[in-house]
């Protein structure tokens, strides 16, 4: 069963003459262990797609299904629970709370879920360690560089056991090595059984995905998935032994 499913999803902002059709009939399924990248020009609907997938926004038409629950059929409390427990996000604008330290920011979703303070702290430190920031756990966001803040946001998305990880341009402020480390992290999380959706402008980062979906004017125009299995691929490259 898919962790995430979008079924013929439309999202229109406004009405009549001035209506903006941000998404127009998008259908997409992401299985456990599958990593999908979404690319497309600015304004093509990438963030809209991600917000709908995470239940932060509701479709004008069509259905969004997360682990079997149709989000449109949930009440507010149920929806909030799905968002807290199942979904990890990295937003395009980072959304760290300025009055909380890095560790507190990361621990927040777990705390909201009623986990004990000691436990949330342990998980938060582990998640910060994963992104190489254990040393900065007690710093506030405005005491960190842009790239460090971005990694805190990623730690917050990965903390605990999220089945669906959504990331909107998570590598924006990172240099190429750190950016790659973040991609490896997302990839590892997906390989451990989560479903991942990554929005990015960078082809090099999208290339970590199993499938790359191209959006244009709110529609999927193309999908690129690898055609061959890694083992076959190795046989095809001269001089490389599988």
């Amino acid at each position: 069963m898919s962790v995430l499913e979008l079924r013929e999803v439309y999202r229109t902002h406004g009405k009549g003459e001035t209506a903006v059709h941000a998404l127009r009939g998008v259908t997409l399924a992401v299985a456990p262990g599958e990593f999908v990248a979404v690319m497309g020009p600015s304004g093509s609907g990438k963030s809209t797609l991600l917000n709908l997938a995470g239940g932060l926004d509701a479709p004008t038409r069509g259905e969004v299904v997360v682990e079997g629950s149709v989000l449109g059929g949930l009440n507010r409390k149920q929806l909030a629970a799905v968002r807290r427990r199942r979904v990890g996000y990295v937003f395009q604008d980072l959304n760290l709370l300025p009055s909380l330290t890095a560790a507190e920011n990361v621990a927040l979703p777990l705390e909201l879920d009623g986990m004990s303070l000691r436990k949330t702290r342990r998980h938060a430190i582990a998640a910060l360690e994963e992104v190489g920031l254990a040393d900065l756990a007690l710093r506030f966001p405005d005491e960190m560089s842009g790239g460090q803040q971005q990694r805190v946001a990623i730690a917050r998305a990965l903390v605990g056991d999220r089945r669906l990880v959504l990331a909107d341009e998570p590598t924006g402020a990172l240099d190429s090595q750190t950016g790659e480390a973040v991609l490896k992290l997302l990839r590892a999380r997906v390989d451990a059984g989560a479903a991942g959706v990554l929005v990015t402008h960078e082809a090099r980062h999208a290339a970590w995905a199993d499938r790359v979906v191209f959006l244009r004017d709110g529609e999927i125009v193309d999908t690129s998935g690898p055609l061959v299995q890694p083992e076959e691929l190795l046989h095809n490259v001269p001089g490389v032994r599988a």
Binding site: K184, R187, A203, R204, A206, A207, W208, A209, D210, V212, F214, D222, T223, S224, G225, P226, L227, V228, P230, L233, L234, V237, V240
Partner: peptide, 18 residues
């Protein structure tokens, strides 16, 4: 062309992962 190049890029990236 972009889809083809993207696919290549995915394949290189997977080789690199190994």
């Amino acid at each position: 062309q972009r889809t083809a190049t993207m696919r290549l890029l995915q394949e290189y990236t997977r080789l690199k992962g190994g």
